[in-house]
Write a protein that binds this DNA or RNA. Structure first.
Length: 682
RNA sequence: GGUGGUGUAGCUCAGCUGGUUAGAGCGACGGCUUCAUAAGCCGUAGGUCGGCGGUUCAAGUCCGCCCACCACUACCA
């Protein structure tokens, strides 16, 4: 096999957030793949870094009253620590806010300019005159032009699902200062993509370039029409890289982010004396990007076009994975399922998560679900019950002895059968189909345990005349165990190392080790190689996670004095009199029926009892936050005299009150116990 | 509404280019064992392979329609 030269990246985590279990899907899938390649003897380097630029970073630093750089340093250190704790170790974990990146962005930009790929035209956007910045759609809030529900974002309505331009909003306000935004025109720079259309048609559809789902998707959507120009400039103030020949304008974060892959490599090259061109301008070097499906099009349209223009090597493969759900639902701060990597580490071993993800992940772009009961069962039964137990039940019989020459003729062909699987398991890893690899490997563990059962070393031990046979049986079992740990090494590197130590083996593990038995190593005293998962610790993790989010929200509130983020984002309405207020007839109601509206993403149909046999039907946009069955029987609050509104799915006779920005982040109200349906709220 | 995907035992899934009585792991139940972190082994139960129709000597596997669920998308990067 030729020695391949491979450069691997994971998507750059956004600097404003901690590493969570969703990002770990990507980090670990990348890590399994690259450790596999290393085990096979290839030359592999792994680069990543923080994605730092954009309005959000700027606003956060302002709010916290410090320079963005201080924020960046702190978050980067935390990111590296979290990832390393999961045995995800980069050759360089950098940042997009570095001199190296700025220089490379300049290089790309010159190339784009030189080749006439840049267009300019005016863009009219909302501008916040108080904060002095242009506002992206999501920073504008106003009434939905269709259903008139208040406080919707500038691009779409969370209540009725309508989409529109921010200019159509009723009474728009800046989410930053609360000031009414003004429309202002500003000159923007665009990268023209249509000239790359033919190239991208071909490049994206090349076999093995990306998962077929992604290739089809591109073909059917973006590539089906003329490619639009890409708006890559943002007017100051913006935290980012200033455009060299257009002062006062900054590169849009998505232009400089992927260049960060190269910049991270560059820093590493400068440090080690390597040549950047050997990694990024070398057709013999394979570049592999691992990304989530949400950013597929940045990596498969803009990015190859940019690389081509600037004369860099294009990726060989873009590996796309789906999202993580927990217990079948989108991760949620409220239930604690949006677990930070750090919180996980406080309670559970990284090896558990590594194995569990490996057993779930395939080459498909499908989302994967982390079912916590399954997590516990799988780790305990596969790793502890099958694999570890194999060593644990035999090693003690030969403690302190050297392993004898492998008794090939006496193992029922098991070792050879395991070795014969080498290619199939390797293919599964190569195709990042780790779930298949895990299945194949666990089948080996099953067979090995049957063997031990049949030979009953514990019985042999009692018979003086069978000590030789005892040693052979244990040598076989331990070699089968060893074979399994080698196959598992990409996923469980620590475990593989400790297993080597148990068998008195030295030197680095290699893939070929799975095909030849070991002898001579002195078997150490057996000590636990892996704890089993305690379900109570899983629960403790969820509790801590939930508490952590609540605390951080409280802290955010405290940091800004009496206000908090929600308040900041949504200034008070104009003052009203008590007479204005009494016009709104709020009532306590009992939810007597709740059903999902099948054709709607966000709506539940609620039947609300006002007491005395009086009911109202209300459509509420809370589907993503509540399950119908959880609502039935609950008391809540409705606006009872709101004019009925005809909706696509029926007549809505009022509205229930809820707080929160929308989507799954919605909180309906509850009266204290004792309130009765129909009672007025005043 | 559009596009793509999925629907196989209680759960998670495997079933390649159609071919004998449909598989695995986990779980359940019964038994054995007791070396091992209450681990292991043997056995049993459990499936109209989402539904209907078609092609074929033969379909979970191909075609059509329908149903359910999921993802993406809804003029938008």
């Amino acid at each position: 096999m030729d020695r391949r030269q491979i450069l691997v990246t994971s998507a750059l985590p956004y600097v404003n957030a901690g590493i969570h279990l969703g990002y770990m899907v990507e980090a670990l899938q990348t890590d399994f793949w690259l450790r596999f390649q290393r085990l096979r003897g290839h030359e592999v380097r792994y680069f990543c870094g923080d994605d730092t630029h954009g309005t959000a970073t700027m606003l956060r630093a302002q709010r916290e009253g410090r320079e963005p750089e201080a924020l960046l340093d702190e978050m980067k250190a935390a990111h590296i620590a979290d990832l390393n704790a999961f045995d995800v170790v980069h050759d360089n974990f950098s940042s997009t806010h570095t001199p190296a990146n700025e220089a490379l962005v300049g290089e790309f930009w010159s190339a784009l300019r030189e080749q006439g790929c840049v267009a300019e035209r005016d863009v009219t956007q909302f501008f916040d005159p108080e904060a002095g910045i242009f506002l992206a759609d999501r920073f504008i809030i106003g009434g939905c032009p269709k259903c008139e529900s208040p406080d919707q974002y500038g691009d779409s309505c969370a209540n009725c699902g309508a989409t529109y331009e921010p200019t159509e909003l009723i009474d728009p306000k800046s989410a930053i200062s609360g000031a009414p935004p003004e429309e202002r025109s500003h000159r923007h720079l665009f990268v023209e993509l249509e000239p790359f259309h033919e190239f991208l048609d071909e490049w994206t559809q090349a076999p093995g370039r990306m998962p077929p789902e992604t290739a089809n998707w591109l073909k059917g959507t973006f590539l089906a029409d003329a490619l639009r120009d890409w708006d890559i400039s943002r007017p100051a103030p913006y935290f980012g890289i200033e455009i060299p020949d257009a002062p006062g304008n900054y590169f849009y974060v998505w232009l400089d982010a992927p260049i960060g892959y190269i910049a991270a490599t560059k820093e590493w090259c400068d440090e080690t004396g390597e040549s950047l061109d050997r990694w990024w301008r070398n057709p013999d070097c394979e570049i592999h990007h691992f990304i989530g499906k949400d950013i597929a099009y940045f990596h498969t349209l803009f990015w190859p076009a940019m690389l081509k223009t600037a004369g860099f090597q294009l990726p060989k493969t873009v590996h796309v994975h789906g999202f993580l759900t927990v217990n079948g639902e989108k991760m949620s701060k409220r239930t604690g399922t949006a677990v930070l990597a750090r919180t996980y580490l406080d309670h559970l071993s990284p090896e558990f998560l590594r194995y569990y993800y490996a057993s779930k992940l395939s080459a498909k772009v499908d989302d994967i679900d982390m079912n916590l009961d399954e997590f516990v069962a799988k780790v305990n039964s596969d790793l502890v019950g099958k694999v570890v137990n194999l060593a644990s039940r035999t090693a003690r019989f030969v403690k302190g002895e050297g392993l004898p020459a492998y008794p090939n003729a006496k193992d029922d062909g098991l070792f050879a059968a395991g070795a014969a699987l080498s290619d199939e398991i390797a293919e599964a890893y190569e195709a990042r189909d780790s779930n298949k690899a895990m299945r194949l490997i666990m089948a080996l563990a099953d067979r090995a345990n049957e063997f031990v059962e049949a030979r009953a070393p514990w019985t042999l031990k009692k018979d003086e005349s069978k000590q030789e046979e005892l040693r052979e049986v244990c040598a076989i079992a331990l070699n089968l165990f060893r074979q399994i740990t080698v196959y598992l090494a990409p996923v469980l590197p620590r475990f593989a190392e400790e297993s080597s130590r148990l068998l008195g083996l030295e030197g680095e593990t290699r893939w070929e080790d799975a095909s030849s038995p070991v002898e001579g190593g002195e078997v150490a005293k057996f000590k636990h190689l892996m704890e089993r998962v305690d379900p109570e610790k899983v629960q403790a993790m969820l509790d801590a996670s939930r508490a952590g989010w609540e605390a951080s929200e409280a802290e955010a509130a405290a940091a800004t004095g009496s206000t908090d983020e929600a308040f900041d984002g949504e200034p008070l309405e104009a003052e009203i009199t008590i007479d204005d207020f009494v016009k709104v007839d709020l009532r306590v109601v009992e939810i007597v029926e709740a059903k999902s509206v099948p054709k709607a993403n966000k709506l539940l149909e609620l039947t609300l009892s006002l007491g005395g046999g009086e009911t109202r039907t209300v459509f509420a946009g809370i589907k993503k936050a509540y399950k119908p069955e959880d609502l039935v029987g609950r008391m809540t609050v409705m606006v009872a005299n709101l004019a009925p509104r005809k909706m696509k799915f029926g007549l809505s006779e009022g509205m229930v009150l809820a707080a929160g920005p929308g989507d799954s982040d919605i909180y309906i109200l509850s009266p204290d116990s004792g309130a009765k349906p129909g009672q007025r709220i005043r």
